[in-house]
Nucleic acid binder design. Structure first.
Lengths: 222, 222
DNA sequence: AATATTTTTTAGATTAGTCTAAATTTATTA
DNA sequence: TAATAAATTTAGACTAATCTAAAAAATATT
């Protein structure tokens, strides 16, 4: 029996998934309140509710983790979110910095049939427009060999497969540099004192990027 | 300043629009409670709120009508609903009896940009999969010369442009008869006592339909 | 180990949307 | 037109999600 959650409950599950993934351990009340822009008190309340529904493992003062059931629902939301992002970029020609908020709403539309048909219509994409993997219907993520551009040394080149942050300002900055998924980056020089990099983009434009930027670019060998 | 309403408020506006249109006058509390499957008490509460926001004209015990502002919001919801239905049928290959409930959720996604891009992607459709007109961005509906199949006499033929009800059972019945938008119907015979009609569909299959069915088929001359 | 600090939970309130039951207004009909 | 019925509104209560302030537990520090 497919029981359904409120949008708020769904957002809590997603937040728990994200925080646990980032911190590599159970999520704290405080971390969740930050992720969700609510107060810790609200989080405590909701954790009790989600626990009653068997979606999370929760012991007071000990942090939370998802049960298999909660995890399935969270990955399904991520799947829907990323499928909609592909739709918005590939079909409706939105740019990659415009799609997050809209997909944040679209992911809550309740229909397995819609999810399946959208997936087929988009030709079963494995990655979203930011290079993040789209879990399959069973919740499995494709793992990819990737590394930060900042890990590369002078003279080497690599191809962009993803970004580590989706801040709009960052994505727009990349637009300006004509850097997108698939773009080739060649490292010409690394400044020693601040690790900034002189790079060539797609064998055409030369520019210099900060270490911070280089850390946010996920690459694969060509 | 584009202020936004809750999904519930939006649904009330749509209900008021629909009831007023059907009854050709201001909507009563009871009619709205039926349309929305709530109690009259809930409707009274909400009417006060919508009135405070200048979305409806409301005098206690006198029924309600939409203000220009409320009307704009209602027609915009109808526009979005119908655009999504076109998407679901034309692009995702849903059948016309499956799309209402999903569009009912999709219409509430808040993004003018999304609406505009979807419209362009679908090539600015003027009618939805049930033949209902899609209002333009200014809220204007295309008016069409149409009549019920039941108004036609023996020997004449016409082409289906819409349906008067979207009950799933009715739409599925039409699927079974291979009747859809654009289908040609030729009237062979009308039984006098119950007004049932012997018809030929697309110059191929002959069948008999009830007067009730004939009243729900909207046609245009060929 | 005792104290101070941080984190988390509880208590009590608030808002949106809903309900039932009672009160009030409007409409119908005898 | 007075009585009855129907429609509508109000009163009071409930749930979900949130908040602030206070209490309690866990962690860090001296």
């Amino acid at each position: 029996m497919a029981f359904s959650l409120t949008i708020t409950e769904e957002n809590y599950l997603k937040a728990i998934f994200k925080v646990s993934e980032k911190e590599k351990k159970s999520a704290s009340t405080n971390a969740l309140s930050k992720q969700l822009s609510t107060t810790p008190a609200s989080v405590s309340d909701m954790l009790r509710k989600l626990s009653d529904k068997d979606l999370i493992h929760y012991e007071k003062y000990k942090g939370v983790s998802l049960t298999p059931k909660g995890s399935r629902m969270a990955t399904n939301l991520i799947r829907r979110h990323r499928l909609w992002e592909v739709f918005l970029v590939d079909k409706l020609r939105f740019s990659w910095d415009q799609v997050h908020d809209i997909a944040e709403e679209l992911e809550h539309i309740q229909s397995d049939e819609l999810e399946a048909r959208l997936d087929a219509y988009l030709d079963y994409p494995k990655f979203d427009p930011h290079g993040d993997p789209i879990p399959n219907a069973e919740g499995k993520f494709t793992i990819r060999n990737q590394f930060q551009l900042s890990d590369l040394t002078t003279g080497h080149e690599a191809s962009l497969v993803g970004v580590r942050t989706q801040e709009k300002a960052f994505l727009k900055y990349l637009n300006g540099l004509k850097i997108k998924i698939g773009t080739t980056i060649h490292i010409k020089e690394i400044t020693e004192y601040d690790k900034s990099m002189k790079i060539v983009i797609n064998n055409r434009d030369a520019t210099t990027i900060s270490h911070d930027t280089a850390q946010n670019l996920l690459m694969k060998r060509i």
